[in-house]
Amino acid sequence: MINDYKINITAHAGCMDTRMDSIESIEAGIEFGADIIEIDLNVDKDNNLILSHDIPKEEIEYPKFKMVLEMMKNQKDILLNADVKNPVMLRWLKNVISEYESLDRVFLTGLTLQDIISNKEFLNGLHYFVNIGISDLENIKLEKLLNELEILNVLGININHGLATSELIAACKERKMITSVWTVDDEEDMKKIIGFNVNSITTKRLDVLKNKISEMQIEIME
Score class of each variant (00 low, 15 high):
residue 99 E to V: 08
residue 96 V to W: 00
residue 170 A to L: 07
residue 99 E to T: 11
residue 38 E to M: 11
residue 143 E to C: 10
residue 131 N to V: 11
residue 123 L to K: 04
residue 15 C to V: 04
residue 6 K to H: 10
residue 196 F to Q: 01
residue 100 Y to L: 09
residue 50 I to F: 00
residue 98 S to R: 13
residue 200 S to G: 03
residue 145 L to W: 13
residue 52 S to P: 10
residue 178 I to F: 07
residue 193 I to S: 02
residue 184 V to P: 01
residue 19 R to Q: 14
residue 204 K to M: 07
residue 79 L to M: 15
residue 160 N to T: 06
residue 53 H to A: 00
residue 155 L to V: 03
residue 27 E to F: 11
residue 176 K to L: 13
residue 50 I to P: 01
residue 35 D to H: 11
residue 49 L to F: 15
residue 14 G to M: 10
residue 7 I to Q: 02
residue 161 H to M: 14
residue 9 I to T: 02
residue 64 K to V: 03
residue 52 S to D: 06
residue 93 L to E: 08
residue 169 I to Q: 05
residue 178 I to L: 12
residue 79 L to R: 09
residue 164 A to E: 02
residue 148 E to I: 15
residue 59 E to W: 10
residue 114 Q to Y: 09
residue 110 G to C: 08
residue 219 E to H: 11
residue 210 K to I: 00
residue 119 N to R: 00
residue 113 L to Y: 09
residue 107 F to M: 02
residue 170 A to I: 12
residue 129 F to V: 03
residue 216 M to N: 11
residue 53 H to T: 08
residue 168 L to I: 08
residue 93 L to V: 05
residue 57 K to F: 11
residue 40 D to N: 14
residue 206 L to V: 01
residue 135 S to M: 13
residue 65 F to H: 05
residue 156 G to N: 03
residue 109 T to K: 14
residue 120 K to G: 04
residue 53 H to I: 01
residue 54 D to P: 04
residue 215 E to P: 08
residue 78 I to Q: 09
residue 38 E to L: 07
residue 54 D to M: 02
residue 80 L to W: 09
residue 78 I to N: 10
residue 41 L to Q: 12
residue 71 M to N: 08
residue 9 I to W: 04
residue 86 N to E: 14
residue 121 E to L: 07
residue 138 E to P: 01
residue 45 K to M: 08
residue 163 L to T: 06
residue 153 N to A: 06
residue 185 D to S: 05
residue 179 T to C: 12
residue 42 N to K: 01
residue 146 L to R: 09
residue 75 Q to N: 15
residue 28 A to V: 02
residue 94 K to A: 05
residue 53 H to V: 01
residue 154 V to I: 13
residue 30 I to E: 05
residue 125 G to K: 03
residue 71 M to S: 08
residue 66 K to V: 15
residue 60 I to G: 05
residue 205 R to G: 00
residue 19 R to H: 14
residue 123 L to R: 03
residue 155 L to H: 08
residue 41 L to D: 04
residue 95 N to E: 15
residue 189 D to I: 13
residue 130 V to F: 05
residue 157 I to R: 07
residue 216 M to T: 07
residue 117 I to V: 10
residue 48 N to Q: 11
residue 76 K to S: 14
residue 39 I to V: 14
residue 160 N to G: 10
